[in-house]
Design a binder for these strands. Structure first.
Length: 322
DNA sequence: CGGCTTTGACCAGCGC
DNA sequence: GCGCTGGTCAAAGCCG
């Protein structure tokens, strides 16, 4: 299936049950209800997307197909993460056999051992090899993955501006997809957050962005006071410019990692796009301070409410769910 | 000149 | 064991 391009990232989400609804995915593991899935909002305190979904569903243009995916029931919600907590707690690396890269710092523990074991004689080659092993090695099968969450965005631009600065460090062709996958790393020195961006082969107008890791620094845009006054936090990671937007969002539940993604349809100036996303429990650890500071805002007016408000402001061409 | 992208190569994990 | 695939590195080139 075409979605295999990122099936490793969002296992079971596109497993088929929700295919018809295009863009509207919410796979609920057997034995769990939709509200169960939404329930872990409580672990993060304050309002969340789930609040909106639960209490103001009519205000949110989100379609939910509660297809059942017999996969792995989601693990119990993690304890409330501190803002500085490594969001690995979110993921359950056990059953997902996909090759998820580990963060570079995860390699550090392997380095010494690896260097000790290295027996190559060619110095130059060895040095180069060592460096690569040092950084690319993924050795410990038990090493935990960085928390990840993905979202889909209907946009012409591949790399959405989410307020952080990213450096592209790789691009790979993706099997069964004509579109390459790009790899970005947060340029902040102490921040190991990565993201992958790829265009859906099934729907070329959709860009799938997967974040991995937790930012440990303020968003450069916000810290520079570059926010437009009209901007609203949807998630601390980025702001929604309240102009130029029309969008339709659909949650996409990543049940193995307890992360949430949505499909967001945007019709805006491609040159000034913002990404949108929003993972529940990830949000606080991934983008801690803004979320917390905007908690009340989110409850009343933030998040999706803002997202959909544009639909009212500008006639929303009932976009067909994909 | 610094920061970023491109791109070929390398490595690890996984399935057969 | 081998091949495939995903993820990463790092040199080279580009750009403002």
């Amino acid at each position: 299936m075409a979605n295999s391009a990122f099936s490793d990232q969002i296992p079971s989400v596109y497993g088929g049950g929700s295919g018809g609804g295009g863009g509207s995915f919410l796979d609920i593991p057997q034995g769990y209800s939709y509200m169960d899935m939404l329930g872990f909002q409580d672990y993060y305190g304050g309002a969340s997307l789930f609040d909106l979904l639960q209490h103001h569903p009519s205000n949110i243009n989100i379609n939910i197909n509660s297809s059942v995916v017999v996969d792995h029931p989601p693990p119990p919600p993690p304890p409330p993460p501190e803002t500085t907590t490594n969001s690995e707690v979110v993921n359950t690396p056990t059953t997902n056999s996909s090759s998820i890269s580990s963060s570079s710092n995860e390699h550090l523990n392997d380095v010494d051992q690896e260097n000790n074991n290295n027996t190559r004689s060619d110095d130059d080659h060895q040095q180069k090899t060592d460096n690569k092993q040092l950084k690319a090695k993924k050795k410990n099968p038990k090493k935990e993955r960085e928390a990840r969450f993905a979202f889909m965005t209907k946009t012409e631009v591949d790399h959405l501006d989410d307020g952080y600065r990213w450096r592209k460090y790789g691009q790979k062709a993706v099997k069964n997809s004509p579109f390459p996958r790009s790899y970005y790393r947060c340029t902040s020195a102490s921040c190991g957050v990565k993201k992958r961006v790829e265009r859906s082969s099934e729907d070329p107008s959709t860009v799938v962005t997967t974040y991995e890791g937790t930012h440990k620094h303020p968003c450069p845009i916000t810290s520079r006071g570059m926010l437009p006054e009209t901007a609203t936090y949807i998630n601390p990671s980025f702001l929604l410019p309240q102009l130029h937007y029309q969008q339709q969002s659909s949650p996409l539940f990543h049940n193995q990692t307890n992360s949430l993604s949505f499909t967001t349809t945007t019709t805006m100036n491609p040159s000034s796009s913002y990404s949108h996303n929003y993972d529940l429990h990830e949000a606080r650890s991934f983008f801690p301070s803004p979320l917390e500071s905007s908690s009340s805002l989110m409850r009343d007016h933030g998040l999706l409410q803002d997202m959909v408000s544009f639909q009212g402001g500008k006639e929303e061409p009932k976009e067909e769910p994909r």
